[in-house]
Design a binder for these strands. Sequence first.
DNA 1: TTCATTGTTCGATTGTTGTCGAACAATGAA
DNA 2: TTCATTGTTCGACAACAATCGAACAATGAA
Lengths: 102, 102
Amino acid sequence: MRELHHPTRDAISLPQVLHALSDPIRLCIAAQLDCRGDLPCGTFCETAAKSTMSHHFKVLRLAGVIAQRNEGTSCFNTLRRDDLEARFPGLLDAILRAADEF
Amino acid sequence: MRELHHPTRDAISLPQVLHALSDPIRLCIAAQLDCRGDLPCGTFCETAAKSTMSHHFKVLRLAGVIAQRNEGTSCFNTLRRDDLEARFPGLLDAILRAADEF
DNA sequence: TTCATTGTTCGATTGTTGTCGAACAATGAA
DNA sequence: TTCATTGTTCGACAACAATCGAACAATGAA
């Protein structure tokens, strides 16, 4: 598989993060990673096409919200808590707390 | 002038708020309202066309981020702090603090 | 009334985004 | 090797979003 690009901590941009999390599916992905820990891509949304989900994971990764790593045939996803907290203190927590409302 | 629709507190949606604030111009508008208080539309961005700015204010208003009221020929804008704080505690503060980084 | 100021609305354009299915790639098991 | 599993990439499409200029509306001042 190809290299997975991740922005450095300093390169994470606020508008990009907000945009990444402004989609309900992506918000849901982040919320699940928050409460259930690292998960492979396949364990999420059932209704959307695989290619659609792949797209959403990519948006989250390029925005710096998640890190992805390949393990076997799976692709595990992790929230970049520390990086986001360092760059935008309190932001991720506030969004995830707000996302619980749904 | 026409009625200005504002969503009720309960109708404010997280994805919509995040989307509204994911645009640099709109983020800037919110940040200025935060530190400089209520302001008419005309006191913001200089480079963008009036119609463009009008569009951005409308997006913020329909998302529940700002309230607008007409006064004479001006249209004053206010951050809906209390409503946002009640609905999504800590969210607006975290975003505005993060926006200072720019 | 006439005019300047301040915004809004409209239509057009350009670009971005979300979605899908089909084809492809990589891994690991039979 | 063959096959199933898991994702990615590609091309297409429709929907949405950002931008602009021109025309319009409302207010208040001259």
